[in-house]
Design a binder for these strands. Structure first.
Length: 595
RNA sequence: GCCCUUGUAGUUCAAUGGAUAGAACGAAGCUCUUCUAAGGCUUUGAUGUAGGUUCGAUUCCUACCAAGGGCACCA
């Protein structure tokens, strides 16, 4: 972070002294480590800005009112001119500056800089933090499973992404409040209850998750009946109304039981996933609050539609939006109305600087409509809303069931992934307790990583056979690298080799440099992830450093009493383990010491 | 029909308008009496089509083709 700013300022001042104006300086890491540690394309940009008006025979001719001039020379020549100036006041950390390619300016940092950066990592347990969001209070709403329905794969995605984003922006200094919004009223509840009434409650000896599974099955059956049986449909509609107004004692009993059981089952899943929430919001509570808001603005923002429904003509305000129903002709609030109530409530509970909602992109379009309505009701709150959408999990093969023939839910996926790890480590020298813990940590990591390794907007093509990857570009690969490093550190303790920085005039070999050249970048990666709400930058970065470290590990002996470099190699290993641990934490993945 | 999103190796994903488009899986070969082989090292192979803007386009714009989502009483 510090180095980046330093070089940027250096360039800025140099350009000023050359009378070149630059709006912003793009400083990047070249793709290839051989091309330096930082690179800028400023010569290309400045070349254009430098151009002065002449006739049309110049390269490129007229573009956007700017006319190219040959007297500005080539970008390469300009780059050389800039470098010449830069070289006059070179900071200690910069080894050399070169012009490369068509006019890139590449900065090479000194060995001392890298060694110091390793020191810095070891001195700061929270290495990677930044101040982007210091002092901001941000609520992040994610997961949002519905009572009476299974915890499906979409909830797993939302939870994984939401937890990671929460941790990342927390690392940027924000105070995070985690929220979970759950649909405890609505037709899906009535469908499940309809079947439960027909089939009866499950045996009391059943566990929470077994009972939840039973309720999920009832929902599926009831849903089917609703679509294909008109009598059932009438009955379910009636139950739905009764659930809203709580007018039927026996239905209330089933409802209260079912809601508690499914919520308890969710908590068990959150425990495995490593999440917990500060707030649980329910649609049943938000409905009247939203309804009041809609009523207050009826005739102003909302209009009467067909058959007495209350609707919002969003397309009147923005041609890209469409009309949506807020109160049905039956007088029941829709999801849109509940969302209004929810948002209002969030800002009443906490003085938020930002309210983030994470959902699948199927909700993107209608969320825009809700936002528009909110903007007209309360512009201040609306301006603080941020809707982050993620892709959907799609099946590659069309198969809806797992190996065992069960319907794949988020929960079953977690269990099967963990079971596979358990199978893999069954012959290892661990206690049963350790095996259980490791299989959970690694199994969850495989799933989480496969969700977080790509940018969150895209769909995930899900193939049961391939999705849980344990090798290559995977969560377990990262954990494995960490565990190996940890094993080295254990050995270093036994051999009494302490981390050290006594390099003298000895140069570290080229392999060392690869890992050094990546570690100090961690804060920059976190910063970008935080700014863009994109965890995959961190995921990709961790694979890079893991690869660099594994390469180093495979080709070098680290613990060696006869090697004067050994203490430094141990320091490097320790620094790697720190960064990896922090990085995995930001992805919501545990870092087992052994596996 | 209209509106969003997405098209990159055989497959799954990367690449803030820059340099030789990176990985992983798959396939072929090599590598454990050095610290965890869930590892390491080789080899193989890609920007949907047609234009445009730009010194430079996977990236921006337009059209087309293809996939996913959304378009009034579900969430």
């Amino acid at each position: 972070m510090y180095m980046q700013e330093k070089i940027e300022n250096l360039i800025k001042n140099t350009l000023k002294s050359l009378n070149i104006e630059a709006k912003s300086i793009l400083l990047e890491h070249p793709a290839d480590l051989k091309m330096g540690d930082y690179s800028t394309n400023i010569a290309f940009i400045s070349y254009r800005a430098l151009a002065v008006a002449t006739d049309s025979h110049v390269p490129g001719g007229k573009h956007n009112g700017i006319i190219w001039a040959q007297k500005a020379g080539s970008p390469y020549e300009l780059a050389e001119k800039i470098v010449k100036k830069l070289n006059k006041k070179l900071p200690l950390e910069i080894l050399k500056i070169e012009v490369a390619g068509a006019g890139f300016i590449n900065f090479y940092l000194t060995q001392d800089f890298f060694v110091n950066s390793i020191k810095e990592i070891l001195e700061n347990k929270n290495f990677g933090q930044n101040n982007l969001l210091t002092g901001k209070k941000i609520m992040v709403e994610y997961t949002d499973p519905n009572p009476f329905k299974p915890f499906h794969i979409g909830h797993l995605m939302s939870n994984t992404i939401g937890e990671s984003i929460s941790r990342i922006i927390e690392f940027s200094g924000a105070k995070i409040i985690r929220a979970n919004y759950q649909g405890d009223v609505g037709p899906h509840v009535a469908k499940a209850i309809y079947e439960i009434i027909k089939k009866g409650l499950p045996d009391k000896s059943k566990s929470v998750s077994e009972s939840a599974l039973y309720i999920g099955e009832c929902y599926a059956k009831g849903s089917d009946e609703y679509d294909n049986n008109t009598d059932a449909k009438k009955e379910i509609d009636l139950i739905n109304k009764k659930v809203y107004d709580r007018s039927d004692k026996s239905i209330n009993d089933i409802y209260d039981w079912g809601k508690r059981v499914t919520l308890d089952a969710f908590e068990e899943i959150y425990k495995i996933l490593g999440t917990s929430f500060n707030y649980y919001f329910f649609e049943s509570v938000m409905a009247p609050i939203g309804q009041k808001l809609v009523n207050e603005n009826s005739g102003k923002i909302f209009e009467k539609g067909d058959e007495g429904a209350v609707i919002f003509h969003a397309e009147k305000h923005d041609s890209k939006l469409h009309t949506r129903v807020f109160i049905t002709s039956q007088g029941l609030p829709t999801y849109e109305t509940k969302e209004l109530g929810l948002t209002k409530t969030k800002f009443e509970k906490e003085s938020l600087d930002m309210s983030v909602v994470i959902t699948a992109h199927e909700q993107e379009e209608y969320m825009k409509v809700v936002s528009k309505a909110l903007e007209m009701i309360n512009p201040e709150i609306a301006s603080k809303m941020k809707h982050i959408v993620h892709g959907m999990m799609r099946l590659a093969t069309g198969k809806m069931s797992s190996r065992k023939g069960n319907v794949i839910t988020g929960e079953s996926l977690i269990l099967e992934s963990c079971a596979e790890i358990l199978e893999k480590i069954k012959d290892r020298n661990f206690t049963d307790e350790e095996k259980t813990q490791i299989s959970k940590d690694v199994g969850v990591s495989a799933l989480k990583y496969s969700i977080l390794k790509q940018n969150i907007g895209g769909n995930i093509i899900y193939d049961f056979e391939k999705s849980i990857s344990f090798e290559g570009d995977s969560g377990p690969y990262l954990q494995y690298s960490y565990a190996r490093a940890n094993s080295i550190l254990e050995k270093a303790k036994v051999e009494n080799i302490l981390p050290g920085f006594l390099l003298n005039d000895k140069k570290s070999d080229s392999l060392t440099k690869d890992i050094e050249k990546l570690l100090y970048r961690f804060p920059e990666v976190v910063f970008r992830s935080s700014k863009e709400f994109e965890p995959h930058y961190i995921a990709n970065y961790l694979v890079d450093i893991a690869r660099a470290y594994n390469n180093y590990y495979g080709n070098t002996k680290i613990i060696d009493k006869d090697d004067a470099m050994s203490p430094y190699k141990v320091a490097l290993t320790l620094a790697f383990s720190f960064v990896m641990k922090n990085g995995l934490y930001l992805l919501g993945i545990k870092a087992p010491e052994r596996m």
